[in-house]
Design a protein around this nucleic acid. Structure first.
Lengths: 107, 107
DNA sequence: TTTTATCATCGTAATATTGCAATATTACAT
DNA sequence: ATGTAATATTGCAATATTACGATGATAAAA
């Protein structure tokens, strides 16, 4: 009990849910917005910007990264996280395809 | 510790996160898809369709309803849930506005 | 090489979510 | 009013998430 029953849903449904989960925490939305607005995107800057501890930010970054939304390059001693814009746009399209195939048929 | 710190984020960021949370569970995505594809949308049908117990479905419906995504009409002895399509489209636009203002500036 | 700065991982406590059985409520038919 | 079918609520156990201090790893600088 307690755990999500993943085996009973269609693949496209679990895909939508997994994408939405990335955006389902304000820290991750804020991180994504921040990264996309900066030229250099160093993790410690995010810690300063958002009022959360460094391990917490790092944990959220891992969730975002596991979803394939980041790629990082080393620049000096700081890690530069950048948005994987192709993946990001693919997420947008998947969500829109769900929204657009949904209609109201009754009431 | 453990609870999301909601007070440190901009309103639009928490809005996006709250919307995404509704779609962040496959049961809720499946319910929304199912409702939108049926002519009559009775809860017990959803229980049969998705392999979850009636109280669990009812709980997920409450989350969807609390987000303003449903309106219900009574039809005979069964409750007819219907998609609040205006709210649904508003959700889509908010998500798209977030996606569209996000760019990649480095790496 | 030692220090320093930056980011990741581990361990853990607090809180939230998920799922269901039992029970309550609601609306309708009789 | 009473019975019945459909949905909601409650209470609880299992699991997941969030947050952070302590610690570890890595790379540049001293």
């Amino acid at each position: 009990m307690g755990a999500t029953k993943l085996d009973i849903y269609d693949q496209n449904i679990t895909d939508i849910a997994m994408i939405a989960k990335v955006f389902a925490h304000p820290a991750r939305v804020a991180i994504l917005q921040y990264i996309s607005n900066q030229e250099a995107c160093i993790c410690n800057d995010i810690v300063d910007e958002i009022g959360l501890a460094q391990p917490t930010i790092s944990q959220h970054l891992k969730v975002i990264n596991d979803a394939g939304l980041l790629h990082g390059n080393y620049k000096g001693k700081s890690l530069c996280y950048c948005l994987n814009i192709d993946r990001f746009k693919a997420f947008q399209e998947l969500l829109n395809s769900f929204f657009n195939t949904t209609q109201t048929n009754c009431c």
